[in-house]
Write a protein that binds this DNA or RNA. Structure first.
Lengths: 384, 384
DNA sequence: ATAGCCGTAGAAAGCGCTTGCTAGGGCTGT
DNA sequence: ACAGCCCTAGCAAGCGCTTTCTACGGCTAT
């Protein structure tokens, strides 16, 4: 029914081994033979059987990218950049066998260097993104599924859940993956607790970003700053908040809640516009003296802006609003949103390269990626 | 080195066949045996070898979702919804074998119904999204890669390229996929040219949406309406534009360009904010009488808004602006964007169900999904 | 008691590919 | 001319799982 390697071999009058070698291009095959095989391949519309190939070779060309919410550009941008880096490589050079010899002249290995004439070893990788919807179970399930597929690499993006059990489970899963030869990369997520693992981590400087943003507001003269934080138990949420409070404390303001106590100026919620809207209305209600609102991210900030307006207040004259991430739409908000820029594109691309083994891992396996303050029109000095 | 089925079998003192059956749960295995096997599985931290399993069973649990731009929420939302529908199902019932008998009492098949006691047949599907970046070659490459993996289903989202050669290539690829038993679903993309294939299509009513949006503007009194269209050669672009012009023509306005002629009121560009910005400035420059701008989608509309403002004009008093898609941020723009709502979430979910075979395909394999006008604050009557 | 069934488990034959090893020509070098 | 190499291609042994077919108790029905 379906065409197999053997069929192609028969048609090209060669052995299956030869066909395999032509297709994988990592073994010298005479040009004429190669030609014949290639012709047979597309006369027969042959498509390699991936599972069989992966089984025999004990490797697969799958690379998994885990994201918390695929509908959120924050993840979309990172995933897209990573996928671009991983995806379709330069086309293999079907002809030009002889040219390798010319190039070989530059080699020190002598006239009969055995490596001459070899073609791209790897082959096409299939980067796939998996949407965990922020659910711990799904995260684990996807990790198992990817291990099942013997994925070549796995990239985990975004903040991690701060649950001891779940953290341990994920760490164990990643360790298993790594042990099985899968490259593991963390992107925008803190390194694993014990860093003995061969897991590269690209962490965002959320704490620093949060601090700088707060400092900016303090410098403008704000003293009562509301904070619409992300979901509890997320590293991202905690780090941004810590940075924020660090700055407040440094300015001699009562950064309550740092001990986990109730902080009337901080409200937690999901990363949604709605959360931003509702939390901000609540904040405005209970703190009439509020002159600024910092949101967990840009999406939340949009909701905050809507809330401020619906209270009949102006941005930034009456209340300043700031976000985090600097997603593309932030500059288009009215007024343009002050936020903290995270180089999502770059980080994603780098993660992709690490996953491919194209780029050397950072020293210690850990790199921190800067978060830059983008002061724009949505923040200004408070009314005098 | 790595644990295999045989290892588990040895440890559980059963044959590999039995372990396989426990894991796949579609063959009666005595509770005690099952128990023993399951214990061995997790004592050994056994993870099924996907490729081997797929090879032997001649099926895979991969479902591919192709999107043009993963960083664009338009696709993210559809992909996310589809993935949710496909992804992690209810947990298999590890115990409770006996209960099947009790339930069996309700069956008409008699006391020894052979089907009693069977568990979920399918098993976990891995939904993966593939980012084509709008590139025809990548689209084709991904299709081949997915065929290699013997994917269970493939979902193509978003507008198709209107290039005869490429269209034929894609159609051929989809046909091959379908022939190989892969379920193919089109989501937000017009049906295949000859609909004899077993390919389900969920198309958006882009033409109708474009028409209604134009009618809305016409009803408000606009007569000189600029149009910042999407990239040429995309079905989405063409359909929206056709609907737009249909309405203009019906209103007796010179809908130039319908024959492909130069239309000074229409400009093409990518689906980016920047394109919206630049095209709109250009439009405003060459058509001082312009009172409204329709954008290819909401993202472009955001750019258009910025351009209008930068020209010192107000929205909607001086110029009305409208988008398309009704992405989440549209309602948050200032003023809230008039747009055409596409039920992306629902469409994606439905595509996911079609891919899983959970939902019956629409009659004729084709369904058109409505596009609803969302008249908001960014459009108003033109200055008198 | 005996025949016959049903429920359960094992043996073994692949699934389609990769790859280490082997073998046979055609050259080169002497 | 002959030995020895290199280049190219084939052989065959798996990779780890699924699944058909077969086998074997114990229980029911006569």
């Amino acid at each position: 029914m379906t065409v197999t390697l053997a069929d192609v071999a028969a048609r090209a009058r060669v052995s299956p081994a030869t066909v395999s070698r032509v297709l994988n291009g990592n073994y010298p095959v005479a040009a004429a033979t190669r030609e014949r095989v290639l012709r047979a391949v597309d006369e027969l519309d042959y498509v390699l059987n991936g599972p069989a190939s992966s089984l025999a070779a004990a490797t697969s060309d799958l690379v998994g990218i885990l994201v918390n919410d695929i509908a959120d550009p924050f993840f979309g941008i990172m995933a897209g950049a990573a996928q671009t880096e991983i995806g379709i490589q330069e086309a293999p050079d079907a002809t030009g066998f002889a040219r390798a010899d010319a190039a070989g002249a530059a080699e020190a290995a002598g006239p009969h260097a055995p490596g001459a004439g070899r073609r791209r070893a790897g082959g096409q990788k299939l980067a796939v993104v998996c949407n965990t919807v922020g659910s711990p179970e799904r995260e684990l399930t996807y990790l198992t599924l990817l291990q099942r597929q013997r994925a070549a690499a796995v990239i985990l993006t975004g903040g991690a859940l701060e649950d001891a059990d779940h953290g341990a489970a994920v760490t164990a899963a990643l360790r298993r993956l790594a042990a099985a030869g899968t490259r593991v990369v963390l992107c925008g997520r803190p390194p694993l607790p014990d860093d003995d693992v061969a897991v590269a981590a690209l962490a965002f400087d959320n704490r620093g970003g949060g601090r700088r943003l707060a400092e900016h507001l303090l410098a403008l003269g704000h003293r009562t700053i509301g904070y619409v934080a992300g979901p509890l138990e997320r590293t991202t949420t905690r780090h941004r908040l810590e940075g924020h409070r660090e700055a407040l404390r440094a300015a001699g303001l009562p950064a309550a809640g740092s001990g986990g106590a109730q902080d009337p100026l901080t409200l937690h919620g999901p990363y949604t516009r709605r959360s931003g809207y509702e939390a901000t209305r609540e904040l405005l209600r209970r703190q009439p003296g509020l002159t600024a609102v910092v949101a967990a991210n840009d999406t939340v900030a949009l909701g905050a802006c809507a809330a401020v307006r619906d209270e009949g207040l102006r941005i930034p004259q009456d209340v300043s609003v700031a976000g985090f991430d600097d997603l593309p739409f932030s500059v288009d908000a009215t007024p343009a949103l002050t936020t903290v820029r995270l180089p999502l594109q770059e980080a994603g691309a780098r993660a992709g390269r690490l996953a491919m083994g194209t780029e050397a891992p950072p020293p210690g396996g850990i790199a921190t990626i800067g978060a830059e303050l983008m002061a724009r029109a949505s923040t200004a000095p408070p009314r005098a």
